[in-house]
């Protein structure tokens, strides 16, 4: 497919330039770039499941585990996040599997699956709030600060943190590529279309679902950990609230969840939009920014179900593909 390759080059070059640009820009833009990179990772992780109709409304749970576990280990036991983060990812994966195993066994799919994940997000949120003595409850907590330290992954220098976030984002893209190219994509697509038929074809439905769930939850936890390390403040609502879980869903869909770069575009779009609206409206018209943001998302989901990237693909593909010649009637 030559058209596909051209399109990709057209996308990759500006993207690489855009990814490198923040290193030369002001603190403010670096701050936005870090956020975009981290959320791109999270949205990509979510879309790894979402694209196969495993719609999770509770990815905030994994974000929360990723954020709180390394911070708690650091504050209470002085464990470096370099150990705490993999541990948090492992815990998030374990949590995902504990919920995913029975759901898959009982064939909980579609809306019911979404409800189960919604409940999972709430459970994690409530646990964080309830463990007030350790987590600070609704007030949130901060990691003990030690100034600039790679050991503690506390990097007040935004360019350095951006480099870390970029690596993590790339890890998400690598995972996506691995899935896209592998048999697992066909397996999961067939499961999404017809679970029984996939099983009849020899797909171990349970295992494939759990595999993608593990990858998705682990990467989301990584995103949560980085977000906490970057903000140096974590609260249950900011990490595991319903709002966050839904933000993940909306942004991934807005960008386009069937394309490797869709969730990234979704992150850039939503963050720049929020920021733009905030700057535009300032302190006037309180709530106007959020209202416009919400309205735009609704319009997106109704009219562009394949997201910005899906729309771009359609526009780019149009002039390249000549109208199909009238197909010969199938010989019956």
């Amino acid at each position: 497919m030559r058209g596909g390759r051209d399109t990709r080059l057209l996308l990759y070059l500006p993207l690489a330039a855009a990814a490198a640009a923040p290193f030369f820009l002001s603190d403010y833009f670096q701050h936005m770039a870090v956020q975009i990179a981290i959320w791109s990772l999270v949205y990509t992780a979510w879309a790894l499941m979402g694209r196969f109709r495993l719609t999770s409304l509770g990815h905030g749970a994994f974000l929360g585990v990723g954020a709180y576990v390394p911070t708690l280990l650091w504050n209470n036991y002085g464990v470096t996040p370099w150990l705490g983060i993999p541990l948090a990812m492992a815990l998030a994966i374990a949590l995902a599997l504990i919920v995913g195993y029975p759901s898959s066994r009982q064939k909980v799919v579609g809306h019911y699956f979404a409800l189960v994940t919604l409940a999972l997000g709430q459970v994690v949120l409530l646990v964080i709030v309830a463990m007030r003595d350790v987590t600070g409850g609704s007030l949130g907590m901060t990691p003990h600060t030690v100034g600039h330290s790679w050991y503690a992954l506390q990097l007040p220098n935004k360019a350095e943190f951006y480099a870390v976030a970029l690596v993590a984002w790339l890890a998400g893209l690598v995972a996506w590529r691995y899935v896209e190219r592998g048999m697992i994509r066909l397996a999961l697509e067939s499961i999404a279309e017809d679970e029984d038929a996939a099983e009849s074809a020899g797909v171990d439905v349970l295992r494939e679902k759990l595999k993608i769930t593990a990858v998705s939850s682990g990467l989301t936890a990584l995103g949560g950990a980085l977000y906490a390390q970057y903000l140096m403040y974590l609260s249950p609502d900011a990490m595991s609230g319903v709002g966050i879980s839904l933000q993940i869903v909306f942004a991934a869909i807005a960008g386009g969840m069937y394309n490797m770069l869709g969730p990234t575009i979704g992150a850039a779009f939503t963050i720049l939009l929020t920021e733009g609206l905030r700057v535009l409206f300032g302190t006037h018209f309180v709530g106007a920014a959020n209202t416009i943001y919400g309205a735009l998302l609704v319009i997106f989901i109704i009219f562009m179900p394949r997201g910005i990237v899906g729309l771009a693909e359609r526009i780019l593909a149009r002039p390249r593909v000549p109208p199909a010649p009238a197909a010969p009637e199938p010989a019956e």
Partner: peptide
Amino acid sequence: IAHVPENRRLFPRLTVEENLRMGAYL
């Protein structure tokens, strides 16, 4: 044992070849 299910149960949004590829999943 291979199963040709009732109503064919193809994967409609996969191509013919991808459907065959799914048959050779093992």
